[in-house]
């Protein structure tokens, strides 16, 4: 028995064995408080036991990770991981740049803006783009699309998917055999791999978010959850605003956990509202101040002249910046004037 090799007192060893902790691995993922409870000892003692166990465990470890507590990572490891993490492209280069290369996995990203600015278009685009095969530099994942407003139009999704396939075949690896090896790359298949849920009340919305963990553990290929919009049902007739805040933060927390646990991107669409302050009305994103803390990244979409712009409003690691983008028949793309600018520079 592995436990016998631990340099701990005989009585503690006895307690461990009698409560069923016979291997080192059984101690690797347990919390000190739980262990203290099981063994009926002080928590400080439990911490000591786990420390000893992890040291002994670490000696035998060959992969060289230097985790202090099992399950924790050093910042170095995380940085390393992040560098290699792939992101979901928006199909607009400038937009990707302000996002640090695209929508990052394991994080919650919020998009907000006035109606018609392109939130739904962005949602559909991401649901398609997350499926770009690994060979083409994509994630080869699947998407969950939660439609709360009824704005998801299949005909539009089909257009965007067709344009995506076309672009991939045009710009992807040119070898003919390679193309032949991608028989699944068709707009129809892209649509098939969007798990579409239509949600008609906030009760349903919460229920669905709670159910997602089970659903995703059965569909591990899911790499993006898109909620369009997170807001709609929460602006209806809520008498108790404190309840609304709690429900929303609980839902956001669950989505964040899903993002971390299954290594996927969560994208939330938000609406705008007018806020009354200092005697005038101002435009802000909906759902209040406490909500604005819940999302890791916040991108505001807005009009400037005749062009659509995205502004990185909040991000733990990226600077605030803005970039133009366009909604075209193919979906989200670089804005035309920007393309001209690039062409001029080349000439």
């Amino acid at each position: 028995m592995e436990i016998n090799t631990l340099p701990i007192s005989a009585s503690t060893r006895g307690k461990l064995i009698s409560t069923g902790y016979t291997s080192l691995s059984s101690l690797s993922s347990i919390s000190p408080s739980r262990l203290a409870q099981d063994l009926r000892i002080q928590e400080s003692e439990a911490v000591e036991i786990l420390k000893v166990a992890s040291v002994n465990c670490g000696v035998g470890n060959s992969d060289g990770t230097r985790a202090i507590v099992a399950g924790a990572q050093t910042a170095w490891d995380m940085l390393h991981e992040e560098e290699f993490a792939r992101r979901i492209t928006t199909s607009c280069e400038e937009f990707d740049q302000i996002l640090g290369g695209g929508i990052s996995l394991k994080e919650v990203t919020e998009f907000g803006g006035v109606p018609g600015i392109g939130k739904t278009q962005m949602g559909i685009q991401l649901a398609v783009n997350v499926q770009i095969p690994v060979d083409y530099g994509g994630l080869g994942g699947k998407a969950i699309y939660i439609d709360t407003e009824g704005s998801f139009m299949v005909e539009r999704a089909l257009q965007i998917a067709e344009a995506c396939v076309e672009d991939l075949l045009d710009n992807g690896p040119a070898r003919k055999d390679f193309r032949a090896s991608q028989p699944n790359l068709s707009a129809k298949n892209l649509l098939r791999d969007i798990f579409y849920f239509r949600v008609c009340s906030y009760t349903e919305q919460i229920a669905l978010v709670n159910y997602l963990e089970k659903f995703i553990s059965e569909h591990k290929e899911v790499k993006a959850i898109i909620v369009d919009s997170v807001t709609f049902h929460f602006r209806q007739d809520f008498q108790d605003m404190a309840l609304r805040t709690r429900l929303l933060s609980n839902m956001a927390l669950k989505l964040m956990q899903l993002a971390k646990k299954f290594n996927l991107a969560v994208v939330l669409m938000n609406q705008v509202t007018t806020k009354y302050c200092d005697g005038s009305f101002r435009l802000t994103l909906a759902l209040g101040d406490s909500w604005s803390h819940t999302c890791t990244n916040r991108v505001i979409l807005y009009w400037e002249g005749n062009e659509r712009y995205a502004y990185m409003d909040k991000s733990p690691s990226l600077p605030s910046a803005s970039a133009p983008y366009a909604v075209t028949s193919k979906g989200i793309r670089s804005s035309a004037s920007n393309c001209k600018r690039i062409k001029l520079m080349q000439a």
Partner: peptide, 15 residues
């Protein structure tokens, strides 16, 4: 069972 708890088949959804 609420039918929303299962994803809907997109190609069939054209309104």
């Amino acid at each position: 069972r609420s039918h929303q708890m299962q994803p809907q088949n997109l190609p069939l959804l054209s309104p």
